[in-house]
Write a protein that binds this DNA or RNA. Structure first.
Length: 678
DNA sequence: CGCAAACTAAACAATG
DNA sequence: TCATTGTTTAGTTTGC
């Protein structure tokens, strides 16, 4: 039969064809890789978490200041280059972001600015997190202040009119009642926001600097949560048409010179003006799209492309730009639905940003722990430099192909964008995913990093970024994540589309590739099942696939193996290895470089790769492997592994984050190819 | 430069 | 007939 012959040729006599291939070949350290996707800590590393928390507290104290300094530097640069209008942010992915004048006082940062910060990786995770939180608070406060002013004016006006009229006691009473209710509402919201701010401050995430008149926590200018704010906005402005409202409020919001049109819109104009040129849509990853200014390019619009309205979930065909505008005005006017969609989009962006912050925080913690002080231009040479520096420096150059010369003494200076999109994803465990996909790293600006699907799954779910993993690795991951360690082809498809936004388009291409990989690689074994054919993974074969990546670097492997074999905490292994081998290079060659993160990723990837293909499995009895190779795959993780859990045959996969039925039937069939995303 | 891995595309067959 | 599944080949890109 065809299936049998295919199986035989692929299995090469060693394959397990009964679907139980995983048992003795499961990666021993697996099963924990997903346990930290939300930053929780386990008992095993509670101490480390506490330590990290303390460090985080300290670092957060400096985060805002650093961020402001950075932005001030950017502002100065851009003033020099003549970029002053907040709308002139196109065509320059790197330094396109205008910065409002008063950056030394808390200001709302535009999505573009945030994007720039993220892209350039100039902020530590703590800094980013603080920045994000503070921006939220600032926007709320700004909006609230304006709203309060407006409301007060209206009330006063009404009262004044009625006093002059001296009539209509009913109306007067009504107004008074409204005023009372309104103030009660504001008080309630004030309490809410105070709690929020207190919470932020408690966490050290929000630093209210002394002597900041720009941030007076006025009694009534607090306590607003976004939805309430939006609702109030709508109420306040309901008398006007959407267009007029957008315009008038826009100007009325213009408290802060240039910041309003670019920053406040991240919430207000998004809500109030569906035509806002900054729609924030995946701003982190699609800079070119949002860089287009509607006003400056009359026929280009972030929500319009290829004759299709790109409003989320719309895709209405508009033959020309005018019809698009009509469509936009009619279908996506200011109403509850559009507002809700905006909110969703904002949440998507926020989620991505938070994910970024989290991962950068991890990286920062690692760096801190590894004594890599990013503020030191040059670190003292470490005593041990046993490892071939070629490997690591090579990795560094790979990891940051776009890095430009810059002053090493200003490590946080936003000199150059390093990468975009997935560059912000830290490499974390990814230990069951396996080989990363190097091929198109430059083409897609994908850094050389073995990002962790579990850790970054939210990112890949939302961002149409090509995951830097090979198809084989992804297929394997999909299969191993399934409860039965087997999937039908269609289930594999579903996993791809569920886990990666990237695979929600061009289905014909990647599905073909999936089938191709399933057929081609011996590690994938087709098993006839009651419900048809399913695919399983032969771990032995999969591990065999790995070529020697760092063959010229045996000392590293040796070091890793000798000191940290068998599921010792892998981060400890990394730390030891880096401390003994990598740090000198690291510190001398790249200190102060914004590509530190990429370098670290590259280093870790090297370690991963080395260990992954040199190691067999714990119980591996494959012939021809030396005992030294019987090491767990060092997919470096940030948390120690639980040996018990790691040894269980089912420990390869945890399905904590995996809901098999989650949008299981959602079908991301061939969507029209969106070239502008490529 | 050669090699190998990975990717893409496509042809083709079997199956439901 | 058509879509899906699976196999295979060919060409290209990329990293070593």
């Amino acid at each position: 039969m065809m299936q049998e012959s295919g199986t035989e040729t692929k299995s090469n006599g060693s394959a397990i064809q009964n679907g139980s291939s995983g048992g003795n070949h499961l990666l021993p350290c697996a099963g924990l890789r997903e346990g930290r996707s939300n930053g929780e800590t386990t008992a095993a590393d509670a101490g480390a978490a506490d330590l990290a928390h303390v460090q985080q507290q300290q670092q957060q104290q400096q985060a805002l200041q650093v961020a402001r300094q950075l932005l001030l530097q950017q502002q100065q640069q851009q003033q020099v280059s003549g970029l002053k209008s907040p709308k002139r942010n196109d065509k320059q992915p790197a330094l396109q972001v205008p910065v409002s004048v008063a950056m030394m006082t808390p200001q709302v940062i535009t999505p573009q600015q945030m994007q720039q910060i993220l892209q350039q990786q100039v902020l530590s995770p703590q800094q980013l997190q603080v920045l994000l939180q503070q921006q939220q608070a600032l926007m709320l406060q700004q909006q609230l202040q304006e709203f309060y002013k407006k409301q007060q004016e209206q009330l006063q006006l009404q009262l004044l009119q009625q006093q002059h009229a001296g009539k209509q006691p009913k109306e007067q009473q009504q107004v008074a009642t409204q005023q009372l209710a309104f103030q009660q509402q504001l008080l309630q919201m004030q309490q809410l926001q105070q709690q929020h701010l207190l919470s932020l401050q408690r966490q050290g995430l929000l630093t209210i600097q002394p002597g900041q008149p720009a941030l007076p926590l006025q009694p009534l200018a607090q306590g607003m949560i976004p939805t309430e704010l939006q609702q109030l906005w709508k109420e306040v402005t309901s008398a006007h048409s959407a267009e007029e409202t957008a315009g008038s409020n826009h100007s009325s919001l213009d408290l802060t010179t240039t910041c309003v049109s670019s920053s406040a819109p991240s919430k207000t104009s998004l809500i109030m003006n569906p035509h806002a040129s900054t729609n924030g849509q995946l701003s982190v990853h699609t800079p070119k799209r949002e860089s287009l200014s509607h006003e400056e390019h009359p026929h280009s619009h972030p929500l319009y492309g290829h004759g299709v309205c790109k409003w989320p979930g719309c895709e209405a065909v508009c033959e020309d730009f005018q019809s698009f505008l009509k469509h936009l005005n009619s279908e996506h006017a200011l109403d509850d639905r559009s507002t809700a969609q905006c909110r969703v989009q904002m949440q998507v962006v926020q989620q991505l940003e938070l994910q970024l912050a989290k991962d950068k925080e991890r990286l920062q913690a690692m760096m801190t722990h590894l004594h890599v002080k990013s503020t030191e231009p040059k670190a003292a040479p470490q005593p041990l430099n046993l490892v071939s520096s070629v490997t690591l420096s090579k990795s560094a150059s790979e990891a940051s192909p776009q890095s430009l010369p810059h002053t090493p003494t200003t490590p946080t200076a936003p000199i150059t964008p390093v990468t975009q999109g997935p560059s912000v994803i830290t490499t974390t465990s990814m230990h069951t995913v396996g080989p990363i996909r190097r091929r198109y790293s430059d083409k897609y600006n994908v850094p050389i990093s073995s990002a962790d699907i579990a850790q970054n799954q939210e990112f890949y779910k939302n961002a149409e970024v090509r995951p830097p993993f090979t198809y084989a690795s992804l297929i394997r991951q999909a299969i191993l994540e399934s409860p039965e360690k087997q999937l039908t082809l269609n289930e594999i498809y579903n996993w791809f589309t569920r886990m990666f936004a990237y695979f929600r388009r061009n289905a014909a291409t990647w599905k073909n590739a999936v089938r191709h990989n399933l057929s081609l690689h011996k590690c994938f074994v087709r098993v006839e099942n009651v419900k048809g054919a399913v695919w399983t993974v032969d771990e032995v074969e999969f591990q065999k696939r790995r070529p020697q990546k760092i063959s010229g670097n045996p000392s590293l492997i040796k070091n890793m193996q000798s000191s940290h074999a068998y599921c010792t905490p892998l981060n400890a292994a990394l730390q030891a290895s880096m401390a003994e081998n990598s740090i000198p290079l690291y510190t001398t060659a790249s200190m102060g470089n914004p590509t530190l993160g990429n370098l670290a990723s590259a280093i870790r990837e090297e370690l991963n790769g080395a260990m992954e293909h040199t190691n067999s499995n714990e119980s591996d009895s494959s012939p021809g492997r030396s005992p030294m190779q019987a090491v767990h795959p060092v997919h470096v993780k940030e948390e120690p592994l639980d040996p018990e859990e790691a040894e269980g045959p089912l420990s390869l996969v945890t399905t904590a984050n995996h809901s098999p039925d989650f949008d299981h039937d959602r079908d991301y069939e061939d969507e029209p190819v969106n070239e502008d995303m490529e």
